[in-house]
Design a protein around this nucleic acid. Structure first.
Length: 916
RNA sequence: GCCGAUGUGGCGGAAUUGGCAGACGCGCCGGAUUCAAAAUCCGGUUCCCGUUAAGGGAGUAUGGGUUCGAGUCCCAUCAUCGGUACCA
């Protein structure tokens, strides 16, 4: 037998894969390379590169990769230069955790995992340009990751131009007096003070602030990595504590990160999530003077128009004024209870703070502030519902118009004063919407009867005139904490002298290599202890050895290296750029190559929606920084983004909603039972997971059916963006399809070419072929692969039934099949005498005239129900169609005793007769 | 709670600007081929009524609405999934 089966598929697939590798079929050059035509249009199609885990690939991984491979192959055949690379995101926690358990160096396990992943991916037949492969752990790569960090270190954000600039421009402007420091006192500063001031303005800066410390992971985490007070990875408890850490001034880019989302071709939901994460709000800073004191409290509010409704103030327990007042408490303060409350709040984790949101707790300070609008004294409270991390850690409370303040006021019996009336609808107990100001007039200022928006403007103008406040834009986004106390990450190119002053490593001395460690176990300590501090020989060195500019520090000066490392995100923040020229060692990317491939951003970026905020926001930030500094052409890296759906699996659920691993379930009469207990189970959709035993390995699927079947099945399951459950039973459908494709060209019995390929073309088959080419050509750019495959199945069924297909028709069909099932298409293409690789041929065209039939069959409805059908010549005008319909025997009979009121003719679609 | 998405046969899913609901595949039923089975091929398959049939009725989460015509548009409700969580 010579039929298409698992053996046939596996034999021909591995054979062609080695030919592709041998002939570099999918390698693409760069502008300036021999044979590279830079006048051709380009298509840069990128997959989010994987973190290669020791477990290897499961069938969920390739979904997006198959999707990107199909459109890449399609674009190549359409005459584009296609950049379609793959690499590895290889720094990170899992390899390090494994090293802690086994003592095996992360570099070894990571390399092994990469080799496994690469083998598995190559077996699926992707058209990656493997000559561009790299991993983020390669010193040639992380050298430039460190270099980019130095760019941020050596830059500041100029608020006037809203862009990053070299730090030297700041120093010049300060010297010239164009920029004045906050204390208006540049001239009298010492050199060290001047340097310290400039340091506070760097985009990569060392900041002492409260961080999220995860004892279990032994490292700090960025705000984004903390979910409900637990680590995003592993879900371990996180506590907050102050620490000096490297930060990125991402908040400076908040406006641009927000505004530039508008022009991106991204899923609406992802843009929304980024918008909300950035969380821009407009409002005002207002200073409240304390009664009987020179102190004041600065608050941020989005509702300055409710100033007349402020009946108390609240400080976060961590607010500096709290500690200050406790040092020297006024007689009105109940020191014991205030201290107790503050201590308790400090010890509470974020999770505990979030429980019982309704139940507000707090303590009165005994202090009073003065409402600047009314002149009234208002009490100052401390409560943990006010967060130190947002605004100024203090609020003006307006219980009538803010639910939280309302709950608090109710609990502690504080007056509630209504100052906004809704323009419509009933007056709720706590109305937080826009309306019209009431009860808002004093000798100082009046906004009564003004709409909320007008009232805001008036109050802000008044605050500014009185110099007690100003308009302010605030972001939810915090600066990005960029230090980790882990081993398996990029070292920072910076050292400290004995006084704690820091110095960057010179560019030409990069990379700062990661030293080897004997032992990866984190140090048990209340204080975060970076693992690299165990590498004492490496840690303590001299300025010259480390590569500090001798002009900054004499070479023999003893220095300590930075022992924190960069987080896992670092490598994935710019890999898309490096793929343009991965082996360039003169620059982080070749300028011409970057301009050609990324001048208008990446044409298609495919990856999971789980990266909607973190990775995509960080990468955008790095790109904008590099853009401002003139290092890249474009200010957004990913022009078009697409999220593939999650591949789920079936699982089995007991009545009490617990899940049963799939290997403990049996199927009888279409029902599912737990083997041990005999309980009937419900089949539900669940994530693939080891514990549920419902993970499918692509290697097994390939062994049973071949890679082409795997590719086709994953794309045929449904729309690429939708989640769908893996159902092994369904795979045979597309496998049978490929068997029929095979028989179009090959006689199963003899293995020879089918004899009828030489016959004359069949008219119906030819029309069907044009229709299929048209459908597939339309569907691929939309990534609507499931319907493209359906139309190809229909074509094969049509030509199989017709028993007639010419060599030329088969050639055309194999070309449109080739992006989906490249191996079988190549094999048959070669067997029917095609030259070279089908992947390098041109995409077929179709004749639109062939899509139109001469006679069109149209359904005829009477009162919206189909009652018959008629045949009309193509191009008949509506009047003619109406005549034909009304004179149709069957229709005329049905219309005998009723009156025709109206006839609606939709050309080429339908006729509806309104009659009664 | 708030924001967003989704809801179509036994299952995965199709359906241009509103125009024949269920393409295509799985499964199932019947047939051909076979000593037999597998594989393959052909036909059928939304549900209900109708002896097979002819034919009729209902139907795209639920309830209303707009329209000659609604899976598609509008309003309300329910369910599932995702995001978010005191952001002043």
């Amino acid at each position: 037998m010579h039929n298409y089966c698992a053996e046939t598929a596996n034999e021909l697939e591995t054979r062609w894969q080695s030919c592709w590798a041998r002939d570099d079929v999918y390698a693409v050059g760069n502008p300036g390379d021999a044979g590279f035509d830079a006048k051709k249009p380009k298509f840069y199609c990128l997959d989010m590169f994987p973190y290669p885990s020791g477990a290897g690939l499961h069938v969920g991984h390739p979904v997006g990769y198959i999707g990107s491979d199909i459109i890449s192959r399609f674009k190549r055949m359409g005459g584009y230069n296609v950049l379609h690379p793959m690499g590895w995101d290889a720094f990170g926690l899992p390899a390090e955790q494994y090293a802690i358990e086994t003592g095996v160096h992360p570099a070894i396990t990571t390399k092994k995992a990469i080799d496994t992943f690469r083998d598995q991916l190559q077996r699926i037949g992707f058209s990656y340009d493997w000559s561009r492969e790299f991993a983020t752990i390669d010193p040639d790569y992380y050298k430039w990751t460190q270099w980019i960090w130095l760019q941020a270190y050596s830059a500041w954000f100029d608020p006037t131009s809203q862009s990053a600039k070299p730090i030297s421009t700041l120093m010049e402007a300060l010297e010239k007096g164009d920029i004045v420091p906050e204390d208006a006192n540049w001239e009298s500063k010492t050199a060290v003070e001047k340097a310290a001031y400039v340091d506070t303005k760097r985009i990569a800066y060392l900041g002492e602030q409260v961080v999220n410390w995860c004892p279990k992971l032994g490292t700090v985490l960025a705000n984004e990595e903390v979910i409900d007070g637990r680590s995003e990875r592993g879900s371990h408890p996180v506590v907050r504590r102050p620490l000096k850490q490297w930060m990125f001034r991402i908040t400076a880019f908040g406006d641009r990160l927000l505004e530039d989302l508008e022009d991106l071709d991204w899923p609406q939901s992802t843009r929304r999530m980024q918008q909300e994460w950035i969380g821009r709000s407009e409002g005002a800073d207002v200073n409240f003077a304390l009664a009987n004191s020179d102190d004041s409290i600065l608050v941020y509010t989005t509702r300055p128009d409710t100033l007349f409704g402020v009946t108390f103030m609240v400080l976060a327990p961590e607010h500096p004024l709290v500690a200050e007042v406790l040092e020297n408490p006024p007689s009105s303060m109940d020191v014991t209870s205030v201290e107790a409350y503050v201590t308790e709040a400090k010890n509470k984790s974020d999770i505990d703070r979030m429980i019982d949101q309704k139940e507000k707790s707090g303590v009165f300070t005994g202090l009073q502030a003065i409402n600047p609008a009314t002149g009234e004294e208002i009490p100052i409270w401390i409560a943990d519902y006010v967060l130190m991390g947002y605004g100024h850690g203090a609020i003006m409370a307006v219980p009538a118009h803010d639910q939280r303040d309302f709950d608090f006021a109710e609990t502690f019996d504080i007056p509630i004063r209504e100052v906004v009336r809704p323009t419509s609808g009933e007056d709720e107990s706590c109305f937080s919407g826009n309306g019209v100001a009431i009860n808002s007039a004093s000798d100082a200022v009046s906004i009564t009867n003004k709409t909320t928006n007008d009232a805001k403007q008036i109050i802000i103008a008044w605050l500014e005139k009185e110099e007690i406040g100003s308009a302010k834009v605030n972001f939810r986004l915090r600066d990005w904490l960029f230090s980790r106390q882990r081993y398996w990450g990029e070292p920072f190119p910076v050292v400290f002298d004995e006084e704690g002053l820091y110095y960057p490593i010179q560019e030409h001395k990069l990379p700062v290599s990661l030293p080897n460690l004997e032992d990866y176990t984190p140090v048990e300590s209340n204080d975060p202890q970076p693992l690299l501090s165990k590498a004492t020989d490496w840690l303590h060195t001299t300025a010259g050895e480390a590569g500090v500019d001798p002009a900054l520090l004499p070479p023999e000066t003893p220095v300590t290296r930075e022992s924190n490392t960069m987080p896992g995100w670092a490598g994935s923040c710019w890999y898309e750029i490096r793929f343009c020229s991965p082996h360039d060692d003169a620059r982080f990317v070749n300028k011409e190559a970057e301009k050609y491939w990324m001048g208008n951003g990446i044409d298609l970026y495919i990856g999971g929606a789980e990266h909607a905020v973190l990775h995509l926001l960080y990468a955008r930030f790095w790109h904008k920084l590099l853009f401002d500094l003139g290092k890249v052409e474009c200010n957004e890296p990913f022009r078009k983004l697409f999220h593939q759906g999650l591949l789920t699996s079936f699982s089995f659920q007991r009545k009490n909603k617990t899940l049963v691993p799939s290997n403990l379930v049996e199927e009888r009469d279409k029902k599912f039972y737990e083997i041990e207990t005999g309980e009937e189970l419900e089949r539900v959709i669940a994530k693939m997971s080891k514990s549920l035993r419902n993970v499918v390995n692509p290697d097994d699927v390939i062994a049973d059916y071949g890679a082409d079947t795997l590719r086709l099945y994953e794309m045929y399951m449904g729309p690429l963006e939708a989640s769908a459950p893996w159902n092994t039973r369904d795979i045979v459908g597309v496998h049978r399809f490929l068997q029929r494709v095979w028989r179009l060209g090959i006689d199963d019995l003899t293995g020879e070419l089918c004899s009828n390929l030489a016959n004359e073309a069949n008219e119906d088959v030819e029309r069907a072929l044009h229709a299929t080419v048209s459908k597939v050509t339309d569907d691929i750019p939309k990534l609507a692969y499931n319907t493209a495959i359906a139309s190809m199945i229909e074509f094969v069924n049509t030509s199989t039934s017709a028993g007639a297909l010419t060599t030329g028709q088969l050639d055309t069909f194999l070309r449109i099949l080739s992006p989906f099932a490249p191996h079988i298409a190549q094999e048959l293409y070669t067997r029917i005498g095609g030259d070279g690789y089908v992947a390098s041929q041109s995409w077929p065209t179709f004749d639109p005239k062939m899509l139109l039939a001469d006679v069109i069959e149209m359904p005829v409805q009477i009162m919206g129900k189909v009652r018959g059908r008629i045949s009309v010549p193509a191009g008949a005008n509506p009047k003619e169609v109406e005549e034909i319909a009304l004179h149709d025997e069957q229709i005329a009979t049905l219309l005998e005793n009723i009156t025709v009121r109206k006839v609606i003719v939709v050309p080429n679609k339908i006729i509806n007769i309104v009659a009664n």
